[in-house]
Write a protein that binds this DNA or RNA. Structure first.
Lengths: 340, 340
DNA sequence: ACTGGCACTCGCTACAGTCGAGTGCCAGGG
DNA sequence: CCCTGGCACTCGACTGTAGCGAGTGCCAGT
């Protein structure tokens, strides 16, 4: 399978033209728009090879060629350089993100920014609890038999749970519990808390034990085990750009997939390598998204990663541009988090 | 404009048939499917009158009739009874809403439930801060010059803000401030706090005054004035039901509108009368939504209203059914809130 | 006031014909 | 051996025509 330089150049040209025009591209148009230095006939021969290898295909006999998912993959891996951001884009990012008042605000601004810059659907995962540490745990009495447990994480996330106590607990006891819990848990990574919480239940004075047990249950079950992930979404209207051509005319499966947090988390949340990930078309494990591509990366203060963010769009998307934007936004968000 | 009983019956039949079949309905089909007791020709005459009055229209000469927005309006106001919920639906509501762990959970479950039951786009507003009272204000030191201000409202909402202090503040002072603030503000409606906060700044010991001033600014600016509203959305995939027939083939404007929280708030947040509100097509003030209808109502514990919820779909929707569902869900959510 | 009958409208579908972009292949030339 | 120009071919897109049929408006009759 000799793919010499020219054939690769042809593939690159096809991808670029198709992405920008959204129309199958023919040999003549190709040699006109790119300086390939050869005739249409030669390009046709190259195209035949590329098609045989599965990088491009013809929608119908006698139409131009269109890249396949495999073609995009090759393009992304070997034929494109990450496009540097324009100064205007850099400015947009900074302007958009300064002045955020809290984590919610940061996440919302980020997701809208991403959607606006890439003109795709943007997805941002809130900092994962699993990767957060406890900054403070607050107990707020609601009634004598009810507490609100508020957990503030170092990433800025705040989670609250209503706790139904086994019996009335005087205010002084609540104060004691608050102190004990924070002494033990403050600073601990959430994933490390289970043994600490166990120890707490045992160390606590006997009269506080039932209450502490209840608190421990809530803490472990709803905050640690079922690690509650949150997701923000924006730019779904961008799915309708390009008429009905992308997504073969039906947004349905895409919209359905976007409603499933589990799916979105899988898409952008798997941040083992800190590099940018590109999923193209049927590389995706969800059938609903086999007509879509996802560009995602992790973000976090400094070198650590606390969550993921990315964009989703038609396989026919501007990969170099979107990769650049996703990376840049992730870096800015990371810096923002590092400040807090 | 004599609209006798039979003409109204014809209009009702047209609306019902069109809603269920999505096809313009002709005189013959009408008499076949409904027991009108008259011939097609008579129905045609009635239709001519209805058309003249603007209640129905023909997409083209020689096609069946379709209700106009005005026709739907008449139908909703005078020709339909709220459809009682099926036992299955009642059960679905109860099953869906029990076991919610916190406000976020309640809201998320509610919005998904609504989307599922009505098969439309569902929108739920979080309890409005403007209508909430302060239950507790917590100050959590992040560093010596930074506090996290956490406000817990009686509706279960929890809002946090990072506060940059003018200078280092010792832990004891934070404790004092916390006590003072809560003594003054706990229990107050958020809309009543501005004078209280002012008073606080003046009453506080001089050494705490700069800090208190900063806190007051954050409190007033980000929690009271710019009353932060939150919205949850679900079921956008339902917009694609009925192919491209609804929304004249373009989901674009709808999706755009749904991304604007301001728009959504206007739609479901204006809850002056505690009754169910129905906005049909161009009754809507947003151009983007002139092809859509909205059914909304307020909800809250007991008789008070703390927020709104509703559904949005094509003007061709099952109004009686959706009105019933929206009301029922609102009532259940109200009960749920009353328990907490 | 309702009904049956009738002519008319007009969107939809099928079909045939034309056009043209794009292709595959082949023979010839550097 | 690779590239090129030429050529026949394919097939989707578009156009125009014709027939069908659902649905209508109107009118005369009961």
């Amino acid at each position: 399978m000799g793919l010499d330089d020219r054939k690769l150049a042809v593939l690159r040209a096809i991808v670029e033209d198709y992405v920008s025009t959204q129309e199958p591209v023919g040999s003549k148009a190709l040699v006109e728009r790119h300086q390939l230095g050869v005739s249409p006939a030669t390009v046709r021969n190259d195209m035949a090879v590329l098609e045989e290898e599965g990088y491009i295909r013809q929608p119908h006999t006698s139409a131009g060629r269109v890249p396949t998912d495999r073609g995009y993959r090759l393009f992304v891996d070997r034929l494109s350089r990450v496009k540097p951001l324009s100064p205007a884009e850099r400015r947009a990012i900074e302007r958009f993100l300064v002045g955020a008042v809290d984590l919610d605000d940061v996440v919302h601004r980020t997701v809208r920014l991403l959607a606006q810059l890439t003109r795709q659907v943007a997805v941002v995962q809130y900092p994962s609890l699993a990767r957060s540490s406890v900054r403070h745990l607050e107990l707020v009495p609601i009634s004598t038999t009810r507490l609100m447990l508020v957990m503030i994480a170092d990433t800025g996330r705040v989670e609250q749970r209503l706790v139904e106590l086994p019996g009335p607990v005087p205010a002084d006891d609540v104060t004691d519990l608050r102190r004990l819990i924070n002494e033990k848990l403050a600073g601990a990574r959430l994933s490390d808390t289970p043994p600490l919480v166990q120890a707490l239940v045992e160390e606590v004075p006997p009269k506080l034990r039932p209450t502490m047990t209840t608190l421990a249950t809530v803490l472990l079950e709803t905050l640690v085990e079922r690690h509650e992930e949150r997701i923000a979404l924006a730019g779904t209207a961008n799915l309708t750009r390009g008429g009905l051509l992308d997504f073969q005319g039906s947004l349905r499966p895409i919209l359905e997939a976007l409603e499933e947090e589990v799916v979105l988390l899988k898409l952008i949340g798997e941040t083992e390598p800190s590099t940018t990930r590109v999923l193209i078309g049927d590389e995706n494990e969800f059938d609903n998204l086999r007509a879509a591509s996802v560009v995602s990366t992790g973000y976090g203060p400094g070198a650590t990663i606390v969550g993921g963010l990315g964009v989703l769009g038609p396989t026919r998307m501007d990969y170099p541009g979107n990769i650049a934007t996703v990376r840049a936004v992730a870096r800015y968000v990371g810096e923002l988090l590092a400040q807090n």
